[in-house]
């Protein structure tokens, strides 16, 4: 087991955002989390890398046992240096070029030499076909380009797990495809991923496991076929049929 979370709870303004969730992730697994907006999916991700602190919960990540309500500074930093995250709004550093966005984490998160970091960053840009944009600032790039650099920035760190927080939700429809393609390639390489998404095609075709999440709890989970084609729970069925009308 690479990541094992037990009974994580989080309350915001008397609102139970996470109601005691258990979640285990195997190495190499691709987990898609789907569910209605505001159900706590993003909060779950943000608690895993301590951008928010849970009220209670235990987490075992690799060989480290961490109290999610009282993580030490060292454990927070250690966790973040073994995980990476891709944001809905990309959050590329506005004052750094495409290349610097990718090398920054290597230099200041992993204490790598600048030269080595830059050549790794160039290789990562090459891989996503954006090497000609290496000296561009985020404001000069399209949303799709920014998000693909966001993914490169995360994966270049060689993390044990990459957390994706609705990576395609802010993109224009025609740009979604390129980003999903990058994510699929990553999954095929065996990268462990937790993906919060509204892209049902991705959840169905790429994910090893699909979790349906609503009102701060996991309603049901299983492989794509189980969840999409034979949902057991009424709420899952309602959600899936509501979405089907959209597409």
């Amino acid at each position: 087991m690479l990541l094992d979370i037990k009974n994580i709870k989080k309350t915001l303004k008397n609102n139970h955002v996470l109601k005691g969730i258990d979640l285990s992730i195997e190495k190499g697994e691709v987990v898609a989390i789907i569910g209605p907006s505001g159900s706590g999916k993003t909060t779950l991700l943000r608690n895993i890398n301590f951008l928010e602190t849970a009220d209670s919960g235990m987490m075992k990540f690799r060989d480290q046992q961490i109290d999610m309500a009282k993580p030490s500074k060292e454990k927070i930093l250690w966790t973040r240096r073994h995980m990476a995250m891709v944001f809905q709004n990309y959050n590329l550093f506005k004052n750094k070029t495409a290349l610097e966005n990718i090398s920054e984490g290597l230099i200041f998160g992993q204490n790598m030499e600048k030269k080595t970091a830059e050549s790794l960053a160039e290789a990562a840009l090459n891989q996503v076909g954006l090497i000609d944009k290496k000296d561009f600032y985020p404001s000069q790039l399209s949303g799709g380009q920014q998000q693909r650099i966001g993914i490169a920035r995360a994966t270049v760190l060689n993390p044990d797990i990459v957390l994706f927080d609705e990576p395609t939700s802010a993109l224009d429809p025609e740009l979604v495809g390129t980003v999903l393609r990058d994510m699929k390639q990553l999954a095929e390489k065996g990268q462990t991923m937790i993906v919060v998404t509204h892209q049902m095609s991705f959840a169905r075709n790429v994910a090893d496991r699909v979790i349906f999440f609503a009102d701060g709890e996991i309603i049901e989970q299983g492989n794509a076929e189980e969840v999409f084609d034979h949902p057991q729970n009424d709420r899952t069925r309602k959600f899936l049929s509501a979405i089907a009308e959209d597409y």
Binding site: L51, N91, L92, N95
Partner: peptide, 20 residues
């Protein structure tokens, strides 16, 4: 989000502040 992005690539809070 700029600060959060710096943290999740593994920067410590003071580097995140001074560099980003």
């Amino acid at each position: 989000g700029q600060y959060e992005a710096a943290l999740v690539v593994g920067m410590n809070p003071s580097d995140a502040f001074w560099r980003i």
